[in-house]
Amino acid sequence: MKKRGAGVLFITIGVFLISIRYLSAALIGSGVKVSVLNNSPDFDSLLTFVGSGLSNFAIVVIIVGVLFIAWAEIEVKINE
Score class of each variant (00 low, 15 high):
L47G: 05
V34D: 01
L47H: 10
S45N: 08
L47T: 07
G65M: 07
V50M: 05
Y22H: 12
A25G: 13
F49V: 07
G31C: 00
V76Q: 15
G51E: 05
S19G: 09
V36N: 06
M1W: 08
A72E: 14
V15G: 02
N56K: 05
I28G: 04
S24L: 15
L27F: 14
S19H: 14
V36E: 14
I59G: 06
L54A: 09
V76S: 15
I28M: 14
T48M: 12
V36T: 12
L47I: 06
G14M: 01
V64H: 00
L9N: 04
F49Q: 15
I20W: 12
D44W: 05
A6M: 09
G31Y: 05
V15N: 00
F10L: 11
K77A: 09
A25F: 03
N38K: 11
I78C: 02
L9D: 09
M1K: 02
V36P: 02
G5F: 04
E80Q: 07
A26R: 14
N39P: 11
L23Q: 11
V8L: 09
E73F: 03
T12F: 10
L17Y: 07
V34F: 05
L27A: 13
E80F: 05
A26G: 12
E80H: 07
F43W: 14
I63E: 00
V34S: 09
F57M: 13
I74M: 10
N38M: 11
R21K: 14
S55Q: 03
I20R: 10
V64L: 00
F16K: 03
I20H: 02
S40G: 15
A58C: 08
